[in-house]
Amino acid sequence: MATTVVKLLLTITLVFFIILFQGTNGVGCGTSSIKVQTVNTGATVAGGGDMVFEVEVKNLCPCSVRNVRLDGGGFSTTLGVDPALFRADDGGVYLVNGGGPIASMGAVRFSYAWDHYFQITPRSLEVDGQC
């Protein structure tokens, strides 16, 4: 009996260290790993009066991710947004960072101007290689 318990404990310890040193290969890195935060900066666009909002798209996954796509919720802007950071992809879906990688805990930021806030939510992503 004692031998069985010791073998079980050793197996559990071995599995723990394998996961610790090899990583999770992106397991658990879904859309909930992408945090989209929009803040009203308090500024307005000259001449138009539209409010300026700053958006931060942050990767909370322990792995780098790429091809992050967001639902735009009817997104529109009177302020130019760098298409390398955020651009229309297809049918109200927007591509972040040109589809390039966003490191773990990394963020992409852009600003837009409109008369109201848009609900922007994560739609899809790909885990970038091994982690």
Rank of each mutant, 00 (worst) to 15 (best):
A2W: 10
T3W: 09
V6H: 05
L9F: 00
L10W: 00
T11W: 06
T11G: 08
I12T: 04
L14N: 04
I18L: 04
I19Q: 03
F21W: 06
Q22Y: 07
G23C: 06
G23M: 09
N25A: 13
G26P: 11
G26I: 13
C29A: 12
S33I: 12
I34S: 12
I34G: 08
K35Y: 06
V36W: 01
V36A: 02
Q37Y: 08
Q37F: 08
T38R: 01
N40Y: 00
T41C: 00
T44N: 04
T44H: 06
V45K: 03
G48Q: 03
E54D: 04
V55A: 13
E56D: 05
C61H: 14
C63F: 09
S64W: 14
N67L: 08
L70P: 05
G73H: 12
G74E: 10
F75N: 07
S76W: 04
T78V: 05
V81R: 07
D82Q: 14
D82H: 14
F86D: 09
D90S: 12
G92W: 04
Y94G: 08
N97L: 05
G98N: 13
G99Q: 08
P101Q: 12
P101H: 08
V108Y: 03
V108P: 05
R109I: 05
F110P: 04
F110H: 07
Y112N: 03
A113I: 01
D115A: 05
F118G: 09
Q119E: 15
P122E: 14
P122D: 13
S124H: 13
V127R: 07
D128S: 09
D128R: 06
D128P: 04
G129Q: 14
C131V: 10
C131Q: 09
